[in-house]
Structure formats: structure tokens, C-alpha cells
Computed example of a mutant assay.
Amino acid sequence: MDRVAMGGSVVEKPSGRGFVLTAWLVVYSIGALAVGVMLVVHAIQELDNGRTLPIPVALLILGLLGEAIGLTGLWLWQRWGLSLLLISVVVGLVGSVAGEVSGLVTAGRVVWVGLFVFALMPRWELFRA
């Protein structure tokens, strides 16, 4: 670990991503990919049957696309990845609520992102602006 001066005090700077942050990024990426594939399959079925894509499904797909880009940014140590991830989660949550998704699923997503922010904060200084 490196020592970094912050606000007059010296703190230990983490030397790398760490197990928890890496595991979170991998699990979230796999989950977002799985849900995205399911939504795209659903969207293709809707469009093949001559129906239009419901707004909640379109919002969920848009949110997942943003999450995938945000996760890529975070994997590459870019701070903008967190902003994009949070915006995308909000867009996905709007789609979830509009599509009458269970409140438990919606709350689970909020908790999941909250845990990520908790795991990220000790390594925030490693990310590039």
C-alpha cells in the first residue's frame, strides 16, 4: 500500500482493485448481460408479433446498455463510469416501476448499487477523473 497525504493526515492508499470490488464488477457485469439478453429476446418476440415495444421494456434496455458502458468505465478505472452507472440504474428503475416489477426487485437493485458504492469508496482515489 502507498501512503497518500489527504487533508493534513496520511492515509494508506489501496494497492489495487481488491477482491470485493473485482467480484462485484464481475458479478454485476454477468447479471446485467443475462438480464439484457432476456430483455432483447423479449423485445424481438414483441416486434416479430407486430407489436410495439412497451416503454418500460425500452427503458430497461436503455438502462442496461448504460450500465454495461458504466461498468466498462469502472473496470478501466474511470470515475465517469460511476456517474453513468447511477444514471442508468435510475432509468432502469423507472422502467421497472412503470412495468409493474416487484418492489422487492426494485429495492434489491438499490441495495446492490449501495453495496457497490460502499466497496468502491476505499479505492476512489485510484480512479481517473
Rank of each mutant, 00 (worst) to 15 (best):
V41P: 00
A23I: 03
W24L: 10
G50H: 11
W24G: 06
L39P: 01
L64R: 14
G31K: 03
E46S: 08
M38A: 13
G73F: 08
V35C: 07
L33H: 04
E46D: 05
H42R: 14
L59N: 10
V41L: 13
L21M: 07
W75Q: 12
A68S: 14
L33P: 00
W24T: 08
W24I: 00
W75R: 15
I61H: 12
G70C: 12
A43Q: 06
E46Q: 12
E67I: 10
A34K: 02
F19A: 14
R51L: 01
G16T: 06
I69T: 13
A34Y: 13
G66I: 14
W75I: 00
H42D: 11
L64N: 15
R51T: 04
A68I: 12
L53G: 05
T72E: 02
V57W: 02
L62C: 14
L74A: 11
V57T: 07
A43L: 03
T52W: 07
I69W: 12
L62H: 09
P54S: 15
L47H: 10
L76P: 00
P56M: 05
L71S: 10
L59K: 14
A34G: 01
V37Y: 08
L39A: 03
V41R: 02
V57I: 15
I55S: 02
T52Y: 05
I30Q: 02
I44E: 04
F19R: 09
A43K: 11
A68K: 01
R17A: 09
L64M: 12
G18D: 07
P56T: 08
R17W: 04
W24P: 01
G16L: 02
D48C: 02
V41T: 00
V57K: 05
A23Q: 06
V35L: 15
I61F: 02
F19M: 05
A32L: 04
V41M: 01
A34N: 00
V27D: 08
I30G: 06
V26L: 09
Q45Y: 08
A43R: 11
W75C: 00
V37A: 06
V26N: 01
T22C: 00
A58F: 06
L39S: 01
G70E: 09
T52D: 15
Y28D: 15
E46C: 11
L74K: 07
G36S: 04
L39E: 02
V57Y: 04
H42C: 00
